[in-house]
Design a protein around this nucleic acid. Sequence first.
DNA 1: ATTAGGACTTAGGATTATAATA
DNA 2: TATTATAATCCTAAGTCCTAAT
Length: 848
Amino acid sequence: MSDSEDMPLARRRELKEAAAAFSDDDIDDSGDSDTPLGKRKRPPVKKRIIEDDDDDDDESVNVKSESSDSEVPLSKRSRPGAKRPTYKEYSDDDHSSDSDTPLAAKKAVKTNGNRGSKTNGRSKARPSYKEESSESDSDVPLAKKSSSKKVDTKPKAKTSTASAKVKTESSKTSSRGKADSKTATARKRVKDEPDSKASIKKVKKEEEEDDEVDAWWLKSNENEDDSVKWTSLVHNGVYFPPDYTSHGVKMLYEGKPITLSSDVEEVASFFASLLYTEHAENPTFQKNFFSDFKAIAKKHKTVPSITDFKKCDFTPIYEHIQRQKDKKKNMSKEDKLKLKEQKAALDEFYGVCYLDGRKEKVGNYRIEPPDLFRGRGQHPKTGTLKLRVQPEQVTLNLSKDAPVPKAPLGHSWGGIVHDNTKTWLATWKENVNDSTKYVFLAAGSSLKGQSDFKKFETARALKKEVGGIRRAYMTDLKDKKMFIRQRATAMYLIDRLALRAGNEKGEDEADTVGCCSLRFEHVTLEKPNILHLDFLGKDSIRFQKTVEVDEQVFKNIRLFKREPAQEGDDLFDRLKTAELNKHLQSLMKGLTAKVFRTYNASFTFQEQLEKLTPTEGTLAEKLLAYNRANRDVAILCNHQRAVSKGHAVQMDKIIDKIRALKYQKYKLKRTILTLEPKLKKKRPELLEPESDLEDEWMVEHEVTLMEKEREKTRAKWEKENLRRKENKEKAMTEKELKEMLKEVDLREKELAKERKTGNVPGGKGASVEKCDAQLLKLDDRIAATRAAMVDKEENKQTALGTSKINYIDPRISAAWCQKHKVPLEKIFTKTLRDKFKWAMTVDDDWEF
DNA sequence: ATTAGGACTTAGGATTATAATA
DNA sequence: TATTATAATCCTAAGTCCTAAT
């Protein structure tokens, strides 16, 4: 292993990161004795019985807890308590003023970071699947021979009336398939083996996707039984990752190479591949990994028994993996193509199913491969070994009369069910968190599309009701009953700040919160009516905003925070998401906490889009407006992303680019003055220096310009020679090259002179008019570049994708595209167009 | 009435493909 | 033409909400 110095240095991620972070405590093999510490434990909370909102005024009467007092909520919950890690970077910021109206948290502070503190671990013995290794081959997705008639699950005459069919893009093979031909294909597909070289020919470019599509969104479709999801479902099962093949590279233990059996090597490799990443340096991750690694090493009687993480050196394996990656990257074209074909074949086989006779895409047909669990934030189990899933653990869901896909050789399925009230095709239990995993249809499928549609329709229904709902909770803010007050306050926050509901979480998960699970330490109050929120939300993404809130909300929170309460206690000590949602249901059918996010996101988007889109504008300007509106939504929903590694460098580059443009401007101005010195008086602006453009920089810039010029000349010379060679002409000599280069030297001298005298003659046909025209163009380019820069900067930690995919009603976009003549593909990628095909038929005046 | 866990949506990061540059 | 930035896609963790079990 040669090159060992090109270590992929640590991680970027100035975002998250924050404070304290892990203490020095490094993992310690020996005892996993490691006490989990009292963390996460806090004294039971007594119910707070408030007597009044105290001091100042307040018409509000005495607030008392309702009768139920007795029922001692005795939250057995428990949470960190004490030692809250401190966050780094705080930045304050203005507080949004604009009170009313839907939107929320206009400008709010953003920053974020991860929590620190907390080690822990615990890794109880886990079951070891692992049966006999089974003769591999597994890989080959044995095919279904049985093409028996049974497969023929015809579209059951389809319930609904007129079966609207449409063609997606490209109307080819017009007639063709009727139900029959389709089922025929179905039958065929079901038995087609992937990898059979036969299927190679296609792969082609994408498209293909013509096929008739069932345009469910064009049918009247007054809900016909919601719970039944299909009448027939035929599919090919799931794909299992190939068995592990040993690479034989030895890791070091106490500096010496040791031999690992394949199973152990596999786990070592999981860790090795993460070396130098945040994960591998996370003590919790190390601890959990090592605990599992140690166990499996022991089980396989690894020679020097592995007991100390610190004595392990995985770098040889790491380097091997890097080399493999390199190799893959540099693979020959043909090999790459072959790989692609294999994938396509798999896609064709497993990636497709038949739902009520219609061909539909399957989403994640691959069984998740074994790996180290990568929990986010401070997940107590991060690093734990996620075991390989065996077919015996997998249950399939399909039609009664559908052929059962064959399990991998030597294996059988865990179960076969025929539950048409479920949308999943397969399911299994994962070992780390004991959670259930599923194989679902792809996002573009009818099932997903329909529920997406429903989601947005509910949000639109809320639009109609929101006025009344808001009035109601504003009133409830002053209710005498504590529970009602809390509920109303929570609703306010969810509505105005787009918070998530905030279900309770377990001890074995990262400590994150949503609205109902906010604790005291997450909210601080500032005099008149300002709220500082600071907590970790979903995915341990920091939510840090400062907002002005309604007076009564401020009072309420002060009230909730008062007294017996202390850090670690719930802010809403008698409110559960279930109760909140139950209440919401009573206000509007289908209303739950998350609907507010959808509603506010879509509403804000439509509003901003309307406001920002220029009526007369270039395509680019319109797109900018679109992205701005999109970004507003992303900010509202607190969708963040890590700042990319090279961000700062890229910014510098852009700044330099702008300087270069300014330099050109400067030169042009001088040319004008050289041509027409009288203008000095008339147009004094020509004398003004460009901002941020220093002499020193210009000198340097000219040097690089000349360097580039020389390179270009040389390239030209070489190219010319190449051409001549081909034409059997005699090549240009070095001398000629030197001759050519002399011109650059000349130009360099000119520049030097220009710099000294300030006179810039300009090119041949130089005229004041031409220069002015160019100046204008440069101004445009500078403006555009600067806009792009601002855009980039603002965007660096904001992720637009999530809101576009999940929160913004696609019909708003479709209508907008129509209205402003913007091609859809500028807005939606191919997959998004597919996912949203149900929304693409709206008129240009459609409103959310 | 609570709790547990099933089923489905939402989420950011990792990986891969494509576009922009050097 | 190779390199690098960016966009698209893939992956699977982490939420929400609901229903069934206790």
